[in-house]
Simulated scan of single mutants.
Amino acid sequence: MIDHARDLASVREATERLLTAAAALDNASVAEPSRLPGWSRGHVLAHIARNADALVNVLEGRPMYASSEARDADIDRDAPRPLDVQLADVRESAATFQATGDRPADWSRTVELRNGVTDEAARVPFRRLIEVELHHVDLGIGYELEDLPGDFVRREIDFLTDRFAGHKSLPALTLTDDQGRSWTTGGGAQDGPVQVTGPAADLVGWLAGRRDGAALKATGGALPALPPL
Rank of each mutant, 00 (worst) to 15 (best):
A28P: 03
A31K: 08
A9G: 15
V11D: 04
A23R: 13
H43W: 09
A23T: 05
L19E: 14
G42S: 12
G38Q: 08
R35Q: 05
E16W: 01
I48V: 15
A28V: 03
A14K: 11
A23K: 11
R41D: 02
V11S: 05
S40E: 14
S34Y: 12
A9Y: 05
A31E: 06
R12L: 02
R6T: 05
G42F: 07
A28Y: 01
W39S: 07
A14M: 04
E16H: 10
R17A: 09
I48R: 14
D7W: 11
L25K: 15
W39P: 13
S34D: 13
P33L: 00
A9L: 07
A28C: 05
R12D: 01
A9F: 06
S29R: 15
S10H: 06
T15I: 01
A46H: 08
T15D: 09
E32D: 10
A21N: 09
L18W: 10
P37N: 14
L25N: 12
S29D: 08
N27I: 05
V11N: 03
L25D: 11
V30H: 11
S10R: 09
R12H: 03
E13Q: 11
L25A: 04
V11M: 09
D7K: 09
W39K: 14
H47M: 01
W39H: 11
A9Q: 13
V30F: 03
L18P: 10
T20P: 04
R17S: 15
A24T: 12
A14F: 04
I48L: 15
R35M: 08
N27F: 03
R35N: 03
R6M: 03
S29W: 00
V11F: 06
N27T: 04
L36R: 06
R6W: 01
G42D: 08
L36Y: 01
L36E: 01
L18T: 08
S29Y: 02
T20G: 11
E32N: 06
V11R: 07
L19Q: 15
V44R: 10
A46T: 10
L8R: 12
S34Q: 01
V44A: 06
G42L: 10
A24P: 10
W39V: 04
L25I: 07
A9K: 15
H43T: 07
E13C: 04
A21K: 15
I48H: 11
R35D: 02
R12T: 02
N27C: 04
E16A: 14
S10K: 08
D26I: 08
R41T: 02
L45W: 02
A31Y: 08
I48N: 10
V44Q: 04
A24R: 12
T15S: 13
V11K: 05
A46V: 02
L8W: 10
A21C: 07
T15F: 03
V30D: 02
A9M: 14
H47T: 00
D26N: 14
H43I: 08
R6N: 03
R12V: 00
